[in-house]
Design a protein around this nucleic acid. Structure first.
Lengths: 99, 99
DNA sequence: GGCTTATATGCGGCTATGCGCATAAGCAGA
DNA sequence: TCTGCTTATGCGCATAGCCGCATATAAGCC
C-alpha cells in the first residue's frame, strides 16, 4: 500500500482528486475521458486513492461513482485542501504534465 | 528529479523537515543522529529537499547547515504547514516508521 | 603537508510503482 | 442467456527511487 502523501504525488491521481473536489460523484469512465487515461490506469489510480481513504466509491448500476471521502479524518482535511490549493497555483507540485 | 509532493512522501525526509520546522539550522550530522540514518542516506535526502526548494543550505566550516527555505513560494507555505500538522496527528501519513 | 571530521556522489543492486495488454467480473436490457 | 457497457485485476515489463559501500571533496587543526 502507498502512503497518503505518495497517493497525492502522482499527476493523474491529483488531477482526479481535483475533479472530485467539486463535491460531486464521478464515474471512472468520466475521469478517464477528462484525464486522457486508459481504463486500467484510471481504475488502478482510483483504487490507490480509495485504499488510502481519500475517496469512497459507490456502485450505481454499471458505474462506480467516486467521491471525496466525506468522513475524511479531521487532520487530513486541511492537508487535502492545501494540496488542492497549491495544485491550482502555477508552480508545479509534480513533475508530470498537469491535466 | 522528484516532485514536491514526492519529496514530502518519504519518512526520513518528512522527519527531517519536522526537525527543521523549529526554524533553526541543523547540520547533516545532527539529522543523521536524530533520525538514525546513515550519512549518505541523510545527505541524499537533504539534497532532494533542497532540489525541490524546500530547504536551503549554508556552509559553516566543516558543516553544512540546513534550514527551511525562508523564500518558500507563498502558495507552498500552507501546504508545508498542513503536511507538518498532519504529520503530528496520530494517523500515519506515511507507511514507514515515524522518527 | 598529514590527519580528522563532515558532506557529497558515483556505482550497483534491490524493490516499489506505473503502465499496457488481456481477461475477469458486475450490471442491465433484449 | 446473450450481448454490450463499465470496472477491476493478473501478468509482465520498464523505470524510478532508496540504499549501502566506497570514494571524492571540503574545511579545520596540528
Amino acid at each position: 500500500m502507498i502512503s497518503i502523501l505518495s497517493a497525492l504525488a502522482e499527476p493523474t491521481r491529483l488531477a482526479a482528486l481535483r475533479i472530485l473536489a467539486d463535491g460531486g460523484e464521478h464515474c471512472v469512465c468520466e475521469l478517464m475521458d477528462r484525464l486522457g487515461a486508459s481504463q486500467s490506469r484510471m481504475s488502478r489510480h482510483m483504487s490507490v486513492l480509495k485504499a488510502n481513504g481519500l475517496v469512497v466509491d459507490r456502485r450505481d448500476a454499471q458505474w462506480v461513482r467516486y467521491t471525496i471521502n466525506p468522513d475524511l479524518p479531521d487532520h487530513l482535511r486541511p492537508l487535502i485542501d492545501a494540496v488542492l490549493a497549491a495544485a491550482d497555483a502555477e508552480t508545479p507540485l509534480l513533475k508530470g504534465k498537469a491535466a
